[in-house]
Write a protein that binds this DNA or RNA. Structure first.
Length: 641
RNA sequence: GCUGCCGUGGCUCAGUAGGUAGAGCGACGCACUCGUAAUGCGUAGGUCAACGGUUCGAUUCCGUUCGGUAGCUCCA
């Protein structure tokens, strides 16, 4: 007998080797029907796994993240099964669960088109209906390879060959379909009843562009049709928040065929950007930064020294001037370093925090461009910090804190990644160890949650990245903190230490917004275009009821102008309902309706975008309320569902 | 860059099984002078992304290019 501890700390006894599903049944049959897997001693297991030792067990439902994972992983097998039935020559590569569904990479002659989705979905539903049991079995390496060779699955053979010598090689079988897989899986194909294939795209085998491009089919499944409908609806809602759509509708920015990847900002977009930068400068000044500007174009010699001319050439825009090669800067650091090198420095100057809001140009691949999120010309809120080794940790902490404060003003949640030494790296391992442990210590001491991307750092140093999420859940790297050991060496930067000797400074390269353009894109999506009052391009719109009151409205506007509130006047010969509708769609935080009553009482009738009519108020009173919101940078954007 | 899909007035979209296009919104004009999410009438606006081919004839079919888009790769 074995003892299993339940999540409520009760202990139950079972036969040795009982499968998880039977444990669930012992609780209740109804419970057993809704569970999809379990966590046993910290490990996610399938319901048909045998349990042989004492331990703790917690069952997973579809609602649990791990539960969804199991559910969608099995779904990907069902999809592969369906595709194999329809196109027996399809070669299977990999088919994992992802955060929102699953995909399977396959290789076959036939090019799938959207119209095939229905056929595949129907086949998947058939397999679900059959309720096939997923049986797990293991094979020794040689047999596993032979088995997959017989099945003519070259990608699977390659996968097995790359597994470590001692790896357990397991397969899952459902009916006549067998797939190499570590699991775990649902006990049966019967649960994923509601099926929808989402899209088809190319994906390189093993993620390398040198390899063959396979067909990747994305899909999602649910237990009930209702949940699927809800999901589709939610996605449609989310797409309405797309910054590319809102940017156009709200006259913030646009893209032109004449400049792919080079955004044009309209007056309203520039208002928001300027407000962002005002805030940014305020914060950085308080945090002890100074600001510089460096040229957009610098000569080849500089880019050779920095290494960009050789390592980054295909991303740089170059130009010839007076028979000399120049490059438009793809990064600000080399220019910033020239500023450092322009003068002698002492250890007493450190830490030296030098910011630059720099426009950079990078020739990104055309397929990578995406609205404001991925452009070819963008503005980095860059800064370089020069310091002593013993100052690293505190400086990192300072930057982490600054970024956290900055993001929290917008109410953004973010996730942090720490990327460590890659295989190809510059410098001494001991420097890397110091750098990595400084980054870790800073994050740990600040109790910041982060994931480690082993070996994903830049070749010149490890980095901390801050990621924000867009309307449909894609994450974008915004802020970054990078320790750079390479540039100070390449440019032979120096400072005079307390010992009177020359030393090499440590350099941090960091951004908070990352790219103003990308951050702006995230901002639009998070607020669905309804910016908090302090950021709104138009904060108040004055709406006279008829043109008899235009003079008074003009007077109101003037008063608000004097208070430094961004105000617009709508004197068109339209009905008040129409003007309000339009202002509402422009997501203007405040509307002041003025007519006869207001002229008489020297007031305005205030309408707030979310609360609606707030009654009449003295201009000065409501003006001060708005001014307070602006000065405190209150996040008064309408609450989202 | 690669794979799939897409490209019709400023915007959103309809249409042409090959015979040079239509709506709503917007813009403009006129009338209405209006109280919290759309007043009515009228006018202008498109070489159907560009180039080439097939055809008596192409916006429609084919090809190429450009641009967009979903992913892959890359990255802030």
């Amino acid at each position: 007998m074995i003892k299993l501890t339940m999540p409520d700390n009760s202990v139950r006894e079972y036969e040795d080797g009982i499968v998880a599903l039977d444990v669930a049944k012992s609780i209740s049959d109804g419970f057993a029907r809704i569970v999809v897997g379990a966590i046993y001693n910290g490990e996610t297991i399938g319901l048909l796994n045998e349990i042989k030792n004492d331990g703790s067990i917690k069952f997973l439902k579809f609602e649990d993240k791990e539960g969804k994972h199991i559910f969608w992983h099995t779904s990907s097998h069902i999809m592969a099964h369906a595709i194999k039935k329809l196109w027996p020559d399809a070669k299977l590569a990999i088919g994992p669960a992802i955060d929102n569904g699953f995909y399977y990479d396959i290789d076959m002659e036939y090019r799938l088109v959207q119209e095939d989705f229905e056929k595949i979905e129907a086949e998947m539903k058939k397999i679900a209906k059959e309720g096939l049991t997923l049986e797990r079995f293991e094979l020794p390496r040689d047999e596993a390879i032979k088995f997959m060779e017989e099945k003519q699955e070259p990608y699977k053979v390659e996968l097995i060959q790359d597994l470590p010598e001692d790896a357990v090689i397991s397969f899952y079988k459902q009916g006549d379909f067998i797939d190499l897989c570590a699991g775990p899986h649902l006990e049966s194909t019967k649960k994923p009843k509601a099926v929808k294939l989402l899209s088809i795209a190319g994906a390189y085998w093993r993620g390398s562009e040198k390899n063959k491009m396979l067909q990747r089919i994305y899909g999602i499944t649910f237990e009930k049709a209702k949940d699927l409908e809800e999901y589709i609806k939610l996605m449609e809602e989310a797409k309405k928040r797309d910054h590319r759509k809102l940017g156009k509708e709200l006259d913030l920015f646009f893209m032109s065929d004449e400049g792919p990847g080079f955004p044009f900002f309209l007056p309203k977009g520039v208002e928001v950007k300027n407000e962002l930068m005002r805030f940014w400068r305020e914060m950085h000044k308080k945090a002890g930064y100074v600001e510089i500007e460096t040229p957009l174009i610098l000569n080849r010699h500089l880019w050779e020294t920095s290494g960009h001319w050789f390592n980054y050439k295909e991303n740089m825009y170059t130009v010839e001037i007076d028979e000399q090669d120049f490059a438009i800067k793809p990064m600000n650091c080399p220019g910033g370093i020239l500023v450092y090198a322009n003068k002698m420095h002492s250890y007493k100057d450190f830490p030296m925090r030098v910011a630059e809001v720099g426009r950079v140009h990078r020739h990104e691949l055309s397929g990578a461009l995406h609205g404001l999120m991925r452009v070819r010309a963008f503005t980095q809120d860059d800064a370089h910090i020069y310091m002593l080794p013993e100052q690293i940790k505190d400086e990192i902490k300072g930057v982490v804190k600054l970024i956290d404060e900055l993001y929290s003003v917008f109410g953004f949640s973010y996730n942090v990644e720490l990327s460590t030494r890659p295989e190809k790296f510059m410098g001494e391992i001991k420097d890397w160890d110091v750098a990595e442990s400084s980054l870790k210590a800073a994050l740990d001491e600040m109790e910041v949650k982060y994931v480690i991307n082993e070996g994903d750092g830049a070749f010149y140093g490890p980095k901390i990245d801050f990621h924000l999420t867009d309307c449909i859940g894609r994450t974008w790297q915004c802020g970054t903190i990078q320790l750079d050991y390479q540039m100070p060496q390449r440019f032979e930067l120096e400072y005079t230490g307390a010992d009177g000797q020359k030393h090499r400074p440590i350099m941090i390269h960091r951004t908070a917004f990352g790219s103003i353009e990308r951050f702006f894109g995230i901002l639009i999506e998070q607020f669905v275009g309804a910016f908090p009052t302090w950021l709104a391009p138009v904060q108040v719109k004055v709406l006279p009821i008829s043109d008899k009151f235009n003079d008074y409205a003009e007077q109101v506007k003037k008063e608000l102008d004097e208070m430094n509130i961004r105000v617009e006047l709508d004197t068109r010969a339209e009905k008040i309902g129409y003007k309000i509708r339009e202002a509402q769609m422009e997501k203007v935080p405040f509307m002041f309706v003025v007519g006869e009553k207001e002229v008489e009482g020297n007031t305005v009738s205030v309408r707030e975008r979310q609360q609606g009519d707030m009654g009449s108020m003295k201009i000065e009173d409501i003006g001060n309320i708005i001014l307070n919101k602006i000065l405190s940078r209150e996040n008064d954007s309408p609450q989202l569902i």
